[in-house]
Amino acid sequence: MKTDLIIAGFGGQGVLFAGQLLAHAALDADLHTTWYPSYGPEMRGGTANCTVVIADEPIGSPVVARPEAAIVLNLPSLDRYEPLVRPGGLLIVNASLIDREVRRTDVDVIPIPADDVAAELGNPRLTNMVLVGALLSRRAVFTLDHVAATLEKVLPERHRHLLPANRAALERGAELADEVGVAAATD
């Protein structure tokens, strides 16, 4: 088993944390993982991305030229990573911020209005968790319960009260991705 993905967006959208959550979840499942960030001088507002590799054996390269999956949170990230996702791979798009169509037809495209969903759930900072939920629906790397348990372990004490909202965001993202999947299957 081996999978790799890139999560990309603006700094401040929770891109790096979403990747770390998956890496923590991998360790909790006794898998090998690497998390490699883009790192720059800016704290927020610039672009950010991270590459997560998960495998059941030791991992060589922490970077990938053609990821199996990508979660893109803004238009520049779609422009950059749409051409790179491997054929047959997965492209999850934050449709709230990206209004153009995805051109690739050889990848599984899942548009999720993640910012809107997060706002409906009462916290705009849940965007990343909505998209992670969508990923878990399309790639059975971990169960939602497993990731929620990991989140409980890694969230700092001061953020523990946000656990139910995070769980709801994961679930809502997974539901929406299921609906897209069902719609695609019946097209």
Binding site: T34, Y39, V63
Partner: peptide, 10 residues
């Protein structure tokens, strides 16, 4: 190198 410093791993 920068990658070894910045990456996370178990």
């Amino acid at each position: 190198d920068g990658s070894m410093g910045q990456m996370m791993e178990g």
